[in-house]
Structures are given as structure tokens and as C-alpha cells.
């Protein structure tokens, strides 16, 4: 009986710890995104890119973040990096309007 209680207790500890860690990870990413948006709206594009890359390290498949990175690289006239970010955006997005927007940008950047 004691063993069963011990097992349940340790399982509960593991579950609670993993939930807390995942909430913490999401919170971290959200903080980076919030900081990135604030920096972008005040014209600090380099700082914004730094924060977005930190957010991406937690969630590399977020197409919206790739899109924002691409727009920032375009604003900074870093064409090659913008092309890579738009391609990543297409790879991870299921939203047709974002894919269409990415293709329009890629056509422009590739001079088509």
C-alpha cells in the first residue's frame, strides 16, 4: 500500500513539474515575442530580430515568426536572409494567405 502511495506521489510530482516547465517555456517565448514587437514598433529592428530568434529557438516551426523575421530583414535590406526566412515561412505554414504573401515577396526579392 505504501509503495502504491509512493508511486502515485512521484507520478504527480513528475506531471506537475513537466506542466510547470512547459508553461515556463511558453512564457519565455511569449516574452521574447512581446519584446520583439515593442522593439520593432520603435524602429529597433536589430533588437527585434534578436528577440525573434530567441523565440524561434523554443518553437522553430512558428511560421508567423519566420514571416516577421523576413519582413525585418527586408526592412534592413538583407535580401538573402529575407529569402531564407520567407522559404522557412512557406515550409511551416498551412495558412494560404501567408503562403501567397511569402510567394509575392520571394518573386520580388528574386527579381521575377
Amino acid at each position: 500500500m505504501k509503495n502504491i502511495i509512493k508511486l502515485i506521489r512521484s507520478s504527480l510530482i513528475i506531471i506537475i513539474t513537466s506542466i510547470s516547465l512547459s508553461i515556463f517555456a511558453y512564457g519565455q517565448s511569449e516574452d521574447h515575442l512581446k519584446r520583439a514587437i515593442s522593439a520593432m514598433e520603435t524602429g529597433l529592428f536589430d533588437e527585434s530580430l534578436k528577440q525573434l530568434n530567441l523565440a524561434l529557438s523554443d518553437n522553430p516551426k512558428n511560421a508567423q515568426v519566420h514571416k516577421l523575421i523576413a519582413l525585418l530583414y527586408e526592412a534592413l535590406e538583407k535580401k538573402e536572409k529575407a529569402i531564407k526566412a520567407w522559404n522557412d515561412c512557406i515550409r511551416y505554414s498551412k495558412d494560404q494567405s501567408i503562403i501567397k504573401e511569402a510567394k509575392i515577396h520571394l518573386n520580388y526579392l528574386n527579381g521575377i
Binding site: 511569449e30 518553437n59 516551426k61 511560421a63 498551412k94
Partner: peptide, 9 residues
Amino acid sequence: LIPYRVEDR
């Protein structure tokens, strides 16, 4: 809107 979304294709 930027949803914090994970898309698995």
C-alpha cells in the same frame, strides 16, 4: 495576429 502556434504539416 501572431498566434503562438505550432504547425505540424
